[in-house]
Amino acid sequence: MLFSYNQFHRAAFLGVASEFTGKVNTQVDKLDDYFHQSEENKRVHRMNDSLLNLLKANFSYPDTAQKIVTDSLKLDTIITVRRYVWRDAKVVYNTVNAEQNYLQINRGSNYGIKDDMAVLSSDGAVVGVVVNVSPNFSEVMSLLHVQSSVSAAHQKTGNLGKVEWDGKDPRTVLLKGISRSVEVKVGDSVVTSRYSYNFPPNYLIGTVAQITNDPATGFYLLKVKTATNFTGIQQVFVVENLQREEQLQLSKDTEKKMEKQKNKQR
């Protein structure tokens, strides 16, 4: 379709639309909030709980020889490289009934939101990816979108796969590409992979609900119960990978370079 495939038309169509609908949706959402407030409170409290448990004060060390090391990526001993920036946002419109579901959030390019940023829910579960921004609002392609494809991993074994949606049930998504030699059990966690350009690693996508074999390939077809409750979603985080451009550029350059070398050898 014209708008789906033509970047210029899509941007023009969506820019006008989302500024207008965003304002209406924000007003309606204010009312809607009252019905989901307590559930949201619980989510935030759970998140706080998990963060409090990480505080250094919770741990004691048996001897003084042990040293606490903050495990983050270092450029040298002074500069810590920051990889992800988190921004808060509020969902103003959301559907689950369509085959292509989008969320609208109340932050846009004025707030630093850009395309392809990751969106996580208030308890750190995967929601989707930003696909379009206007000055004050952005549209997020939810996991429940038949074109969505998120790089994922089986947490226990670290095997990589892809999370997609078949458009059927908004409570479950599909994890594809996990080899049948891997031992998978119902209830195993599926998390974002270490190699994703958008998502920070090890954030929960869901838990395995049903295991079937894909007869066409040597892979499992795993039904994954989403960790995010898409019907009651309110507050989200938009996560920016500051090294994304660099990573993409590098892989593109590498391809070019290898292509040149191939020609050289001939």
């Binding site: 379709m1 708008f3 899509r10 207008f20 949706n25 292509q100 989008y102 609208q104 549209e139």
Partner: peptide
């Protein structure tokens, strides 16, 4: 309606 449901002209 397309503006609200984010469907491109359907």
């Amino acid at each position: 309606l397309d503006y609200f449901t984010w469907t491109p002209g359907l």
